[in-house]
């Protein structure tokens, strides 16, 4: 099959370009704001670079040291690879392993309890902040701002505050995760409630059901899968934040991570990071399986 060659002669090209200038010259009304926007972003970047007093010398030296650390991190271990094997030492090493795994379990416990109880406590507040449940504009505005304020304070700061109340340890971490997630869930729940379809509830009322029946059989089946999937999603993200609250002393693996980095035990650091990675991947796998099971594949892909 012979096809017409897409190549035109140069005068042919010039003729076409002359005939349809709108396709062959850039439209500056569209292009100028894009180029202007990026130029402004780059200018701000350069300004920030200078304002933060970042010198290239430090950057390169730092990357050199970082490369060294990565080299020292291999292979990840919980023991001491430099000494020859002996029985007593291997017992101590097993102790260390148990300590690390134990604090990983603690981290998971913090994330699990924190997420679950934040969701339970946030449920009534989600109803209060939803426009279609509480028609009073002042009430839901007040609840919303309250939730916003709680949400904008980081988990780490809540952990510091709770340490003052219940002392150092994982319990403070659990309470911190509960507090900061309470704000997030309250907002998410209220949004889910506002987008819920009211017709099933109306149908139930029209067949003689009570208000309770309308909520139980009309509203709850719509929103419960959404709630559960959001909670499961946040469980994974909380596992990650629970790994760092140990830095301020609120339990979990973060404390060991912090100590091992401070004493430059890089092999232990990489072992702990690996432990966190594995835990997060496992949690991610389980929670996405559960989400699929609860709300179905199609609903998730929306």
């Amino acid at each position: 099959m012979t096809r017409a060659s897409p190549m035109q002669s140069s005068e042919e090209q010039a003729r076409i370009a002359g005939a349809y200038p709108q396709f062959f010259t850039p439209d500056w009304r569209i292009r100028a704001p894009i180029i202007g926007g990026f130029a402004a972003a780059i200018a701000l970047f350069v300004f920030g670079f200078i304002a933060l007093d970042i010198s290239w010398g430090r950057v390169w030296a730092g990357f050199g040291r970082l490369g060294e650390f990565v080299f020292l991190m291999l292979p990840p271990t919980y023991g001491d690879t430099n000494l020859p094997f002996d029985f007593l030492k291997s017992l101590q090493e097993t102790d260390k392993l148990m300590l690390y795994v134990g604090s990983m379990v603690e981290t998971l416990a913090i994330a699990f309890l924190g997420t679950l109880f934040a969701a339970i406590i946030a449920l009534p507040f989600g109803f209060l902040a939803a426009r279609n449940v509480i028609p009073n504009i002042f009430a839901h505005f007040a609840v919303r701002r309250f939730l916003d304020t709680i949400r904008s304070v980081d988990t780490l700061i809540w952990a510091l505050i709770w340490i003052n109340v219940v002392g150092l340890g994982p319990f403070a971490g659990i309470l911190a995760v509960i507090t900061s997630n309470f704000g997030i869930f309250g907002k998410l729940f209220s949004e889910a409630l506002e987008t819920a379809d009211t017709r099933p509830g109306e149908g139930i009322i029209s067949t003689g059901g009570s208000g309770f029946h309308a909520v139980r059989f009309g509203l709850l089946p719509q929103i419960l899968p959404v709630f559960v999937s959001q909670v499961l999603y946040y469980f994974e993200s909380n596992t990650r934040s629970a790994t760092i609250i140990g830095i301020v002393g609120a339990g979990g693996i973060g404390q060991h991570l912090y100590e091992q980095i401070k004493i430059l035990e890089w092999q232990h650091v990489s072992f702990l990071v690996l432990l966190v990675l594995v835990a997060v991947v496992v949690i991610d796998f389980i929670s996405s399986r559960l989400r699929f099971a609860i709300i179905g594949t199609n609903a998730l892909k929306r």
């Binding site: 007093d53 990650r240 760092i244 980095i261 990071v273 990675l277």
Partner: peptide, 19 residues
């Protein structure tokens, strides 16, 4: 997956304190 703060801790050792 690795939390920001963990990277920050390691980078503080490599690059020194500061932004």
């Amino acid at each position: 997956t690795v939390p920001e703060l963990v990277f920050a801790l390691i980078f503080v050792v490599a690059f020194g304190l500061g932004p």
